[in-house]
Design a binder for these strands. Structure first.
Lengths: 229, 229
DNA sequence: CATTTTTGACTGACTGGCCAGTTAGTTATG
DNA sequence: CATAACTAACTGGCCAGTCAGTCAAAAATG
């Protein structure tokens, strides 16, 4: 009974690992099976084909994503907003996770063609948007942001910018940290004059373009998806 | 001699059309040949395999892109900047072009894996960035933008935002016009107080989120790539 | 309790289709 | 007629999915 559950979960984790090493485009069922101690036939026993497997995998990722975006209630609303952005756009040093992000781009690009992908991706989007909008609303109530500020509008802006960061990082190898801190600056610029500026901002000196400090400390290293290892 | 040139060009155009109807992921050499009056073997006669074909295709696209981003020297710098953004993020009604954008996303997602893709994409990026930065610089000289404004920084921001717009449009079917006008607003908000506001701004009433006017007039309908038809 | 039967999980070997690339031969062209 | 431009037919490899079992453990039976 929970035997099946376990095996399916094992295959989900295997899919994650296989994606990191092979990418989405040339990922075979065999590759996934090879990441477990089971056979390819077992994979077909548990899932109704590749598409079914991947739909389930996306749902599995979505669960982990909730954890990533969940608010850590420490500090002012804007501090928490900035922390959220940093968490989501964390350029993890772990090369496996980095490669997963790349593979995830491929999946996004497949969404228009594969039935059911888009729906889940929309949920990723909606969840993150809600979280951002809520924090902006709090910031307004807190007096950090002007009352004229439209939380939904900011959230949309942030979402689009985040997607752009991921895309450029994958497509042209652009610097995630630089783009991320640019977004953070935008968010801080919205602070009403006289409002307290968050202190933990580690990007106080670099206004430069490609100046990504490599020794950036990120204790929280979870990616836009929870790492199942 | 120019026979070969013609045929190669015909195959480039065929590749464009084939991408629109099949997407990148399941595009076969046969699909491309079928878009011409030539055979699949002819395709192999002219190109050293699929990868070679696609590298050449990207270069071909890049030529067309230059045309899209080329400045139309009418109006103030900011007007021209806004026009550029609108040209690049034009959600063409032509469904073929729309599908091409989707396919182009797939190509971007393949860049990390395919040798040579990334290089060309970087050139797309660099050209657009240069164009934007130049216009911002002009806007500063013109007194429309504050002297504190950093052209490179704005250009980076615009690039990231544009990529985000394309990605979200493809991945979750987000509204290109709404996102685009959001960016335009950002660009207009940068105007120093008292500077002339461009008049041709057709988005004067809609500050709403999903309010994309379908009757939007775009005389220039070229996409992020020139349509070879 | 000892046995037979059933079932869930799984495997190795196979198949059928697809597709990039090749080759041997044909047609056009200058 | 020599070479460039092509074609039809073919090849070889890959891969999703299938199938005929195996096997251990659970359930039924007497």
């Amino acid at each position: 009974m929970s035997q099946e559950r376990d095996t399916r979960t094992a295959f989900m984790e295997a899919t994650y690992r296989a994606l990191c090493t092979h990418g989405y485009a040339d990922l075979t069922m065999q590759d996934i099976a090879d990441e477990t101690d089971k056979s390819k036939a077992a994979l077909h026993y548990h899932f109704d084909g590749k598409d079914d497997l991947f739909r389930e995998f996306l749902a599995y990722l979505h669960e982990g994503f909730a954890e990533t975006i969940a608010d850590h209630p420490e500090g002012t609303p804007v501090e928490r907003l900035v922390a959220l952005v940093r968490r989501v756009l964390d350029p993890v040093d772990d090369s496996a996770d980095q490669q997963f992000n790349t593979a995830f781009m491929e999946i996004k690009a497949q969404a228009p063609y594969r039935e059911g992908y888009r729906e889940v991706l929309r949920r990723f989007d909606a969840d993150l948007r809600t979280e951002v909008a809520d924090l902006v609303r709090e910031a307004i109530e807190n007096g950090q942001y002007d009352e004229e500020t439209d939380p939904e509008e900011i959230a949309e802006h942030v979402l689009t910018y985040i997607h752009g960061t991921w895309t450029r990082a994958a497509a042209v190898g652009a610097d995630v940290v630089a783009m991320r801190e640019h977004l953070v600056d935008d968010l801080l610029d919205l602070l009403v004059d006289g409002a307290s500026v968050p202190v933990d901002v580690d990007a106080t000196e670099d206004r430069g373009l490609a100046a990504a400090d490599p020794d950036e400390p990120h204790e929280n290293s979870s990616e836009d998806v929870v790492d199942p290892r």
